[in-house]
């Protein structure tokens, strides 16, 4: 029985299996639930991948130097630090962030009324590295000697664990997707089993009139697969509707869970895949069960 045969359908085979079985309705429900979960898992995976990308783009190749000394020393230390940076290999540009710009950065966190000029704010130097990057350890040692009040923040320090966490979460999400597919397959195998048991008389009658096992299996598989596909479409629709309700921009600079643009297309294969899993597993278990029956 090829997929083409299946889609064409055996003439009359569709009707020989009673439709209103509890099994087929449970199959539809189970598939809808799995498809629903799959869409969320996919959305999560897409979000995590995007998150990783944005960190790479925003943070790779940058570093920050903070000059924490107070009063007059701050200007002098900043000068010295800039001198050090200019002579450090691997640094493309270094720029002192003007106080006003720095203030603008902090405003969202502390509000407009904060008396910024009276605060002992560190001076910030933005560094852009060459593609090869610089030796953070060597620079750290040199600064410790010449400008003890300078603190180097090369972003990798906190980016690396975040990237690791992101990779792990992405892996977990993909594992969840695999589990969903596995559960779907198990549900389908059980469904085939139950449907064949529910319809023992149907099988006896079909055998009596000379039906081949593949023909009998096809009648059951077709019914279960179509139910599964219908359930999956419902599940995907429900999940997509819920995702669409989530605000487009995420909180605290995180990308939103809601898929953007083309990412929506990622959920389209879910019903197709669910139907394919249903077709394959049901067919396998139906044929195996029929073989076991005399």
């Amino acid at each position: 029985m090829s997929l083409a045969d299946f889609l064409r359908g055996a003439p009359g085979a569709g009707r020989v299996v009673p439709s209103a079985g509890l099994t087929t309705r449970l199959v539809a429900f189970g598939t809808a639930a799995m498809a629903f979960l799959a869409v969320f898992a996919i959305a999560l995976a897409v979000m995590l991948i995007r998150l990783g990308d944005s960190w790479q783009v925003d943070l790779a190749g940058t570093a920050t130097l903070r000059i924490t000394s107070a009063g007059e020393a701050r200007e002098a230390d900043t000068e010295t630090a800039m001198e050090v940076l200019r002579t450090t290999p691997g640094i493309e540009t270094a720029r002192v962030v003007p106080p006003l710009e720095q203030q603008a950065l902090l405003e969202p966190w502390f509000g407009k009324d904060m008396p910024f000029d009276t605060l002992p704010l560190p001076r910030l130097i933005e560094i852009e590295t060459t593609p090869e990057g610089f030796d953070a350890r060597a620079l750290g040692l040199r600064l410790a000697g010449e400008v003890p009040a300078a603190r180097l923040d090369d972003h990798d320090r906190w980016r690396a664990p975040l990237a690791r966490a992101q990779a792990r979460m992405t892996g977990l999400t993909l594992a969840a997707l695999a589990l969903i597919a596995g559960t779907l397959a198990a549900v389908k195998a059980l469904a085939a089993r139950a449907a064949l048991a529910e319809n023992a008389q149907v099988i006896d009658v079909l055998r009596l009139v000379g039906a081949r096992d593949t023909w009998i299996a096809r009648a059951f598989v077709r019914r279960i697969t179509l139910q599964a596909a219908a359930g999956a479409v419902l599940g995907v629709a429900a999940a997509a509707a819920l995702l669409a309700l989530i605000p487009g921009t995420g909180a605290a600079g995180l990308p939103a869970l809601r898929p953007q643009g083309l990412a929506w297309a990622m959920v389209l294969p879910v019903p197709v895949l669910a139907a394919a899993v249903a077709w394959f597993t049901t067919r396998r278990s139906a044929l195996r069960l029929l073989k076991g029956r005399p």
């Binding site: 003439p11 009359g12 085979a13 009707r15 020989v16 009673p18 439709s19 008389q201 149907v202 006896d204 009658v205 079909l206 009596l208 009139v209 000379g210 039906a211 081949r212 023909w215």
Partner: peptide
């Protein structure tokens, strides 16, 4: 033995249907 959900005529035609 018949398929109880199918009309009699369809039941009688089953030997052809499965072919």
């Amino acid at each position: 033995q018949f398929l109880d959900h199918l009309p009699l005529e369809e039941n009688i035609l089953l030997p052809f249907t499965v072919r």
